[in-house]
Write a protein that binds this DNA or RNA. Sequence first.
DNA 1: ACAACACTCACGGAGCGTGACAGTGT
DNA 2: TACACTGTCACGCTCCGTGAGTGTTG
Lengths: 114, 114
Amino acid sequence: MANPRDPLQAVFVISVAAELAGVHPQTLRIYERKGLVDPARTGGNSRRYSEADIERLRRIQELTNDGLNLAGVKRVMALEDEVVHLRERLAEFERRYRRDLVPVSQARPWFDRG
Amino acid sequence: MANPRDPLQAVFVISVAAELAGVHPQTLRIYERKGLVDPARTGGNSRRYSEADIERLRRIQELTNDGLNLAGVKRVMALEDEVVHLRERLAEFERRYRRDLVPVSQARPWFDRG
DNA sequence: ACAACACTCACGGAGCGTGACAGTGT
DNA sequence: TACACTGTCACGCTCCGTGAGTGTTG
């Protein structure tokens, strides 16, 4: 239990999270107020960032380095999540299609032809 | 021919396009330089905006009104295009699945269950 | 008591919309 | 000639990162 490598285990205080993400600690507070990250809190109201939070912070850095402002970052990350979800559904369709329904004799199902 | 309602027919000069989109003409030149729109040009190098261009300009307005900067608008619109494309592929899968492969006796195929 | 957390405020750079200006084309 | 296009430049506003300052927590 309490494995620090668990991506959902919130272990990093703000100064460490800022260092890992390569930004000013104050910047992380700004991101939180804008709704881009939502770190856990201790009983004493201190932020604790998980490995997944750090990954998200790094993604935010990439996007801001590309010139996006925070409103754009928020919307882009939501859309990227949607794209991932749609790709997963598509892959699931294809898997089922192949496994359950395409005759073995049919070498190339329609979704492989174009 | 040359139907002005054709969404690909480039007919509006910049002042009219700006009025239709509700923005300053100079703003449209900025959008073009940033790669957000690409209006046609006449032989005399004047811009001509199509109905589709106007629609795109209105979408840009929506996004900037939501606080996005132009870099964000560009990326969001590309992602939205991708989402549309993925949804179309998904719908195509479902259509084929229903038509070709799901037995009539099977009332609810797997993709309708969750 | 000290270090690191919490929060708010102010400065500076960059992005973007708007207007002014000069030149060109119809 | 006159008007609307072309471009560039400058002003002002907002956004955002950074630092300072102060209070609180462990």
